[in-house]
Design a protein around this nucleic acid. Structure first.
Lengths: 207, 207
DNA sequence: GCTAATTTATGACACGGTGTCATTTACGTT
DNA sequence: AACGTAAATGACACCGTGTCATAAATTAGC
């Protein structure tokens, strides 16, 4: 998280920093991005950067949090719309997410992000809707689980729900990675996703 | 790939370099590893390193190629053993792979590798059994596809086989990542994998 | 309005990492 | 032994990070 000092900054200086983040993290991945470039774009001295952010990761994830929609709300809503059908809700959520990722302005940022994100980072940005290490979200998770129609699913317990959710997130990330990697259109990405979901829903074995 | 010069080196010098690679890449991830440490461990001058390898990635992937078994052969064999049942073969392949990854000597290396591997790197180490960019493997791929009993699967064409294979590899990587991340036992990892495979085989929807 | 205290801004710098290159050394051939 | 080629070597140029002493600005107290 940025420091208090950052949030006290005049809005236009904050904006310049975020725009510099967008440019640099669109140019290259987090690990290859340089603070030198960021401060040059933002037209602030190097020392100031460290007044506002811990390091470039700090800025990266802050920028990310600024441009992403609220995943949890999005998903929660999809569950309601689909009458507790977890799988249909996820398909809905996927389409909304792809829409966001392919928006002109941040497409390159997301491309670099997805193609260079490792296991740890993927955990960091995966919303934990079912099980969380933080207790403060316990109420939201209860609410969330109650909305799911468990009758529809071959799921025994909460452990397994968590695992299914993480499996679906992984499939989502892979499909998006493939999409960015091969420069697929939104339609192709969704089509690939649907095929995988067909397998998940009905199994790959022929009846 | 290492240079010709490297392969002309006395065996013990080669061995020292590989051991240095094991130590450094077990200490930390590829991106955080340093050539300074590697040459210190191997007791060779820094300049020599660049005589043998392009950069640390070059050594990393060479080391990896030395300690991994031949995935393709392993999988091909599993297909035969399981009479063309692609899914059973993959389950077999998974167990063999986990066995390799958890071997004492290289466990930490693999842990760093899996937890810090990004989408690109995962593509790099995924064996392309069905479709490959390189033409030279075309014969092996034909042989491979002929061995699969397509009657068992809900698969329309080669595109879809490729996609299924990649989906399974992704599930494998995720499960292994979870295992390393939470320090799970081999049995727990395999159990988690089996649950996911149950869904893949039969679908998650209750009948 | 003036001064002290606190907060913010700044860029030079120490440190550590990479890859190169001019030079030296070793080796095989005639 | 003399020559030519291949290999070895470490100093060095370059680039990036994060810190810190100092300067500037802002706020608080009177």
């Amino acid at each position: 998280m940025p420091t208090k000092t950052f949030f006290n900054l005049p809005k236009d200086k904050q904006a310049r920093l975020l725009e510099a983040a967008r440019i640099e993290f669109s140019r290259t991945s987090l690990s290859e991005a340089s603070i030198a470039n960021i401060v040059k774009h933002a037209e602030i001295p190097r020392g100031s950067f460290y007044q506002y952010f811990e390091d470039k990761e700090d800025l990266f994830y802050y920028y990310f949090s600024c441009i992403k929609k609220d995943n949890k709300k999005m998903f929660l809503n999809a569950i309601k719309v689909h009458d507790g059908d977890f799988i249909s809700a996820f398909e809905d959520y996927f389409v909304q997410t792809v829409d966001l990722l392919l928006e002109e302005k941040n497409q390159q940022f997301f491309k670099n992000m997805f193609l260079r994100m490792d296991y740890r980072a993927s955990r960091k940005i995966t919303p934990d809707l079912i099980k969380s290490r933080q207790e403060k979200h316990a109420d939201m998770q209860k609410k969330f689980i109650q909305l799911i129609d468990m009758e529809l699913l071959n799921i025994e317990n909460e452990e397994e729900s968590e695992m299914l959710m993480r499996l679906l997130m992984t499939i989502m990330f892979q499909t998006i990675g493939d999409g960015f990697s091969a420069d697929l259109s939104k339609e192709q990405i969704i089509q690939n996703f649907n095929l995988k979901m067909k397998w998940i829903k009905n199994g790959v074995y022929r009846k």
